[in-house]
């Protein structure tokens, strides 16, 4: 068990990739705080599942786009689970639409939750991490932060901001014993992107070198690696988990 006696907080942990991350961290012995905003029932179910498997878990309500709520999430985690060592900034939303039709709130809300959530979570955890000279932060970004997609300009920009922030934060926080890395999933069929993968599923799969979508577990296993002792010399990286999609030029073949 690589995360025995460690405490992790996963934002947006009740569903999708966040849920898989919570399960994977707990299976390595970590106590896990599952943050949720609206999915209370799913969060409580997950906590039961974590406890049934022999780890400690708690559900914490809170909106990561609100700095004060991010602070109280961290405080609650430390108070109830006895510390904090791993922060997974995972919470994210999409509001896909063409730029031509995009309203100010369509990009501002996506930016506030996706990038604002990473910023608020990171800042909230810092005094704990700096005082103990130990902490790993894993930001769940997206390959969309490095490449473009029609209808996802707002989402893509928010993820690009996360990648840039990850590098700067890693450089600034290294001397305090804190590592910061990002994971960039390709297409993982979760509720968040259901519309996209349902509509374009076959066509998208054909374009991925490994010919399949990411399983949420594929993302979670990299998060566990980055959270744990096997990656102690890694910081400031943005690692794709995308079946080779972003390595490829165009379709990687004539047609």
């Amino acid at each position: 068990m690589k995360l025995q006696d460690k405490v992790a907080l996963v934002t947006g942990g009740a569903k999708g990739i966040g849920r898989a991350i919570c399960v994977a961290l707990a299976s390595e012995g970590a106590s896990v705080a599952v943050n949720y905003r609206s999915s209370k029932a799913e969060a409580l179910d997950l906590v039961h599942e974590i406890e049934a498997a022999g780890s400690k878990g708690i559900a914490i309500a809170g909106d990561v786009s609100n700095a004060a709520e991010a602070v109280s999430m961290v405080e609650q985690t430390v108070a109830e689970l006895g510390g904090l060592h791993v922060l997974v900034n995972n919470a994210g939303i999409v509001k896909d639409t063409l730029i031509f039709n995009m309203q100010p709130d369509d990009w501002q809300s996506v930016m506030n939750v996706n990038f604002g959530g990473v910023f608020n979570g990171t800042k909230a955890a810092l005094s704990q991490f700096m005082a103990q000279r130990e902490g790993t932060i894993i930001n769940i970004s997206s390959v969309m932060g490095e490449r473009g997609w029609i209808g996802q300009a707002n989402y893509s920009a928010s993820k690009g901001a996360i990648n840039a922030f990850t590098r700067s934060a890693a450089v600034e926080l290294a001397r305090f014993g804190i590592r910061v890395n990002a994971v960039l999933p390709g297409f993982a069929p979760t509720d968040m992107v259901a519309e996209l993968v349902d509509k374009g599923g076959r066509g998208i799969k054909k374009q991925i070198p490994l010919r399949d979508f990411a399983r949420v577990e594929d993302v979670a296993s990299l998060v566990v690696f980055l959270a744990g002792p096997d990656s102690t010399y890694m910081t400031g990286t943005c690692l794709p988990v995308d079946g080779g999609a972003s390595a490829q030029l165009g379709l990687g073949r004539p047609e």
Binding site: A131, Q132, R133, F176
Partner: peptide
């Protein structure tokens, strides 16, 4: 400034 911050957290420990 980052060095001062570092010193203060080291002293806290």
């Amino acid at each position: 400034s980052i060095d001062l911050l570092d010193m203060l957290f080291r002293l806290q420990r």
